[in-house]
Every structure is written in C-alpha cells, then in structure tokens.
Write a protein that binds this DNA or RNA. Structure first.
Lengths: 170, 170
DNA sequence: CCTAAGTAGTTGCTAGTGGAAACAACATCA
DNA sequence: TGATGTTGTTTCCACTAGCAACTACTTAGG
C-alpha cells in the first residue's frame, strides 16, 4: 500500500520521462544490492584465506603496479582518494605487518616513499588471487561476454558523470 | 608489466574459460567504481539538501513501507541486516532528531516498536526525492531501457549467488 | 645568506562506528 | 513456580577517519 503510494508519487511528480525512468531505477538498486553482497563475500574470503582485510587491497594494488613497487606517500594518498593522515596510519599497519617499508625519497629530504617488501609482494599476489577468484566465481558466470560489455560501458558512463560532479573528472 | 603478469597468471591457472574471464572482470571493476562515485554524489546531495546522512535512508525506508509506518526493533534490525545494538543506537539518533518515536508493542511487554513521526514521514519523502533524483540524473540517462534490463537481470543473479554463500538465500 | 612562505608527513585530539558480552525485563513452557 | 529463551539496552572495547597542530624540509625573494 505504501509501496503503491510511492510509485504513484514518482509517476505523478517527476515530470521528465513518465514510465521507463522508474523501471530503470530498479537496475541501479539491483547493482547496489549485488555490490553489497559480493563485497561481503569478498571480505569473508579474504579474511579466511589471508587474514587481511579488504581495506588493504587498494593500497597494495597501487604499490604493486607502481615502478619499483614504491610510491611517494602523497601520490599514494591521491591514488586511493584518501587523506594523508589516513594513509600514514594505513602504512603504519602495513609496516607493522611487514608488507611495506618506508624509505627516503632521494632528492627531496622531506619525502617518504612507501615500498612493498618481498613479503608485501607475496601478500599482494595472494590477495589478488582470492579477489579475482571471488569475481570469477560470483560475477563472471552471471554474465555473458555481451552482457558484461553492456555493464562495463554503462557503468563507465555513470562513473564519469559522477566524478565530474565530484570535481575530479580525470 | 605487472598487469600482464597478472593476466598471464589468470590465463594459466584458472582452468575454466581461457580468455573472456579476464575481460568480464573489467565489467565488475567498472560497477564497483560507479557504485563508489555515485554513492559519494548521493551523500553530498543528501547532506546539502536535507542535512541527513545516507545511513539513515535504509531505516526510514523500511519504516515508511511498513504497515502503520512502524516495526518491532528486531524486525527492523533484520530488515537492514544489522545487529540489535546497532539498531538501538540508530533509533536513538533518529529519536533525538524527532523522526522516530518508540512505543510499546502491545501484547508483548518486552517488545518495542519504532514508529515514524509526522516529521519522520516528511523527512523520508524528502530523502526519497533527493535519492531518486540523483539516480535519475546520474544513472538513468546512462542506460537505455534494454541496457537497464540486462543490468538488473545480471545483478540480481549476482546478488542471489552471493547471498546464498552468505547463508541468507531469501 | 637569510627570512618568509609553502609542502610532506606525522601526531594528538575528537567524534563516530560497530561488535561482543553482560544485563534487565518479560514470555513461554514444563 | 522455576527453567529457559527472547527482546532490547548498555557497557566496554577496538577501530576509523578527519581536522588541526606540529616538525622538518624546500623554495622564492630580498
């Protein structure tokens, strides 16, 4: 009853497209639910297989892909879209875990570079393996190549528009 | 370079599909990025327009759609997939904001029902309007009805498989 | 050279989150 | 009636993340 209230409201108050809008919204809701559920699966699997949290993944990926497996602290902070103090503390954690080490940034005396240790590289590869295999078992079988292409195209458009509004068009 | 390492590894170690797997993964990455960016836009807009955080949305939706705009605390906690202590505190916040009130659950003396106040209903409608309009402006124009249908279908499959693994098949 | 201004990174402080476990009030069943 | 289970709250704890202050360094301008 309140549900039909809701659709009626949408149909009468939103002027632009009368019908298909509301139906297309359902696609976004489905994407949100899928994201939430698969993220939770990912967290469980990563924790079970490696003991590492999903939150470490971003930092490790960026370091692994960087030349020399190292980045300046501020570059790394920008790459993961987080504040400097956030990054300082996350690198503290990774350093305590033996996955990352800090070293000086050569010419600039105040710079610090975070670099993956040998263990850090191994940890990243393990994380990446679990991460990919979760996608392979939970997402890939749900989409044909053609469907995946549609999703990739649409979602890239969505991200581009949203990032433009957020002031980082890239 | 390390990226090609990665594809090579996937191609050799994963037995099932040799090529399209890695390409279909890109679709999931795009969906994750889109989800993150649009969620951030949503938070900004909700805060600007209503001063309320996105975290309130789930609870208010569930209350609004419930008969009498009210639910038992434990039903509400189950509906939003959170713990009871979490729900207690969130309802505390909403009560302090005047959007929700607690009342007794009639027959069961230990039960508590959370119910939307008149202000709570108005707040929900405002939140819903901003929420929907963000989707209408950032997602709907990015997808044709046919594309939206593909996304909805695939993402529903993904969510179903993930929820099954999480032990709540629904 | 020396000072002023700016930048890189860290740290203290604060507010907030969320789970686990203990708890009080009540229900149900023997 | 007592034993057991349930409901919701509370306490405690660990963790998160931003802001602002701070140190150490660089760069620009006199």
């Amino acid at each position: 009853m309140s549900d039909s209230d809701h659709s009626r409201r949408s149909a009468t108050l939103v002027p632009m497209p009368p019908r298909p809008t509301n139906e297309r919204r359902q696609a976004w809701y489905a994407a949100v639910r899928a994201h939430g559920a698969l993220t939770e699966v990912m967290e469980q699997r990563l924790d079970a297989a490696t003991g590492m949290p999903l939150g470490w993944y971003d930092v490790l990926v960026n370091l692994y892909l960087a030349p020399g497996h190292a980045l300046r602290m501020s570059e790394l902070a920008d790459a993961v879209l987080m504040s400097r103090s956030w990054l300082t503390r996350r690198v503290d954690q990774l350093e305590r875990a033996g996955l990352v080490e800090r070293c000086s940034a050569g010419d600039d005396g105040r710079g610090v570079r975070a670099r993956l240790t040998r263990e850090g590289k191994r940890a990243y590869l393990k994380l990446e393996r679990v991460h990919s295999s979760a996608i392979d078992s939970h997402f890939v079988p749900c989409a044909t190549p053609a469907e995946a292409e549609v999703i990739e195209r649409v979602m890239n458009r969505v991200a581009a528009i949203a990032r433009r509004e957020l002031g980082r068009p890239e």
